[in-house]
Amino acid sequence: MIPGAFDYHSPRSLDEALSLLQQHAGDAKILAGGQSLIPAMRFRLAMPSILIDINRLDDLRYIEERGDHLAIGAMTLEHSLEDAAVVRSSYPLLHDTAVVIADPLVRNMATVGGNIAHADPANDHPGTMLAYDATVVAKGPKGERTIPIDDFFTGLFENAMGEDEILTEIRIPKPAANSGGAYTKFERKVGDYAISAAAVQLRLDGGTVAAARIGLTNVSAVPMRAKGAEAELVGKSISDAVIEAAGTAAAAECDPSPDLRGGVDYKRDITRVMVKRSIQQAVARAKGGK
């Protein structure tokens, strides 16, 4: 399968990329890792007339703690997240996620920024970034602005950025003491999208859940938080019954579509189990476990 014809640009700086994007607003697509866009172009589901390839913008590849957050450059490869010591040591939810995205070959090309900007509820980063309460940094002709992740996903494959903006960075708040997180994904095989997956980030105060955010993967048209499940946790003393109630709430509030991966009831039940397992793991990590 051969993609439709297009004009290709390979800017060498972010400013050059932004000016190209402004010049061709509405016609141009940004090419990041291309592991979603190029397949879509081969199927002619996407037929952009202009591609702006930002893979030469190596300035957008970094993973480092700055002040109160972890800053991840938009063009950071998924594979780099797997290897980064800071991610392994301090951001276990992000590390869990990085190692189950697509497959090892795709992770050598795919980027964190592309995964998020694509706004596909089947992708793994949206749920994780919702759980982390991350912030997206976008740059456009009017300068730079930050978008809270809760406001970022506006529809299926739609995000809050303007057509003349480029996602440049993702910021994850540094987890407070006694925090833990985990991502649990149920997939038919490596490389497939999740049947369902759950990202949990929480903080304990003694045996009580002081804060919790839960993001779900591939069980809604727009990447979603399981706010009902969060409400079952916050302020409660952690117990099997509380965890079960959170899982049950997530199963009820998600909105999966039936497809070759299963029917609605099945996906709801898998969601219940994924949420429970992620909570259990997050609690164990908050208490100092691996």
């Binding site: 399968m1 290709y8 291309g34 592991q35 190029i38 397949p39 081969r42 390839d53 594979h79 497959d103 090892p104 070959l105 795709v106 050598n108 090309m109 490389g191």
Partner: peptide
């Protein structure tokens, strides 16, 4: 031809990638 199978894997600057998913 769907970025699934890896039969087209080549090394680009030493790293294995799916050559059907790169221009």
């Amino acid at each position: 031809d769907t970025t699934s199978c890896g039969a087209c894997t080549v090394l680009v600057c030493g790293k294995p990638v799916k050559s059907c998913t790169m221009f």
